[in-house]
Design a protein around this nucleic acid. Structure first.
Length: 348
DNA sequence: CCGATTTGACCTTG
DNA sequence: CAAGGTCAAATCGG
């Protein structure tokens, strides 16, 4: 743990140094060094990760980093805050709920969803749901692998099943539609859309919708250890962190964006997509929307709780995977544009 | 054989 | 009616 701390601290110092000395030093050189340091921290944390999620090392490291200095906190803010909401694709919902009816037939599973989304639904209900859906959606920009198969979508730790692809008007690249692989078995409603950014084919715009519920089922492949009911569970439980099989993961997964955000309550989210870290902190720490679709962490009301339970591996993860919506150079450094934003629509 | 992907058709919404 | 989103049959691949 000491080594991890040292590595992380070193990384933070390097990042600080980079920001201070921008222009005096080769940026790429500095970035590589920072990446190396954090990579080592991550690798070590992966090796050392305690079996009991939520307790032990992760929180220690985090609290330690947070207590280092303001710059360290800034880095943490920058890196952590985005993922502490609810719908991160990287971290499944975490509330203690009874297992989902796994035994049910696929159709039964679907019925749950159909109840609201079936084509026969009344328009008012549908629009209601639609409004809520819009709130449960956020997009991130993720750097595409710079080598290998560039068509591969970014790996965010979950397993997705592609169910459609569509050419979008005005876009040079088609949009791919994915849903959670466990949609049927565990009634997991999580979906995402992946589309290359027009002006930069090396960047994916990923839109996430709904939360993963496949981690909540006791029988789910990813059923995490229940810790306190409001603690984070690590994504590695399920399909997360599967061994790379396409050549983009091992060294490339860090390019992936793992942002965790919490939808704001009705009207709570600002129309400003470029929230500063501390703003995000406030917003995301606000009581979760009483969304019936999922509400895992209405209990995880405070960032502190989430922070405390976050394993260090996630931290390293986020360090590479996410940025923030601030103008920080970290974004540039890690080549991960994090325009994490809520799709908001004006109240109709 | 089973699960994932592809792809054209269909549905919903504005 | 156009565009976005989803379905589902056909196909692919392990």
């Amino acid at each position: 743990m000491t080594i991890i701390r040292r590595l992380i601290q070193h990384g933070i110092e390097l990042a600080k140094d980079l920001e201070v000395n921008l222009g005096n030093r080769s940026i790429s050189q500095a970035c590589e060094e920072i990446i190396r340091v954090f990579s080592r921290a991550r690798e070590r944390s992966l090796l050392q990760r305690p079996p009991a999620a939520g307790s032990g090392g992760g929180s220690n490291v985090q609290s330690w980093v947070m207590s280092t200095d303001t710059a360290g906190q800034a880095v943490l803010d920058l890196l952590f805050l985005p993922r502490v909401g609810e719908q991160t694709p990287a971290v499944g919902p975490r509330r203690s709920t009874p297992p989902l009816p796994v035994g049910g037939s696929p159709s039964a599973v679907r019925d749950v969803d159909v109840s609201e989304s079936s084509r026969g639904l009344s328009s008012s209900l549908q629009s209601q749901r639609r409004r809520r859906e819009e709130k449960e959606r956020f997009t991130v920009n993720v750097a595409a692998p710079q080598m290998g198969n560039l068509d591969l979508p970014p790996d965010d730790g979950y397993t997705w099943r592609k169910y459609g692809q569509k050419d979008i008007l005005g876009s040079s690249f088609p949009r791919a539609y994915y849903r959670c692989t466990h949609q049927r078995l565990y009634d997991c409603p999580a979906k995402k859309q992946v589309q290359r950014v027009d002006d930069n084919p090396y960047i994916f715009k990923v839109t996430y919708r709904y939360r993963h519920t496949c981690h909540m089922s006791a029988t789910a492949p990813s059923a995490p250890p229940a810790v306190g009911g409001a603690l984070l569970q690590h994504q590695s439980t399920t399909t997360a962190r599967q061994p790379p099989h396409d050549g983009r993961s091992s060294g490339g997964s860090w390019l992936t964006m793992n942002i965790k955000t919490r939808p704001s309550p009705e009207g709570g989210s600002t129309s400003n997509n470029t929230m500063l870290p501390h703003q995000m902190h406030r917003d995301y720490a606000a009581p979760a929307a009483s969304s019936d679709a999922a509400g895992p962490s209405t209990t995880a009301g405070t960032m502190d709780v989430d922070f405390g339970g976050q394993p260090v591996v996630d931290m390293a993860d986020v360090m590479f995977n996410s940025g923030s919506s601030s103008e920080h150079s970290i974004d540039f450094i890690f080549h991960t544009i994090h325009t994490s934003k809520y799709e908001q629509r004006e109240n109709n």
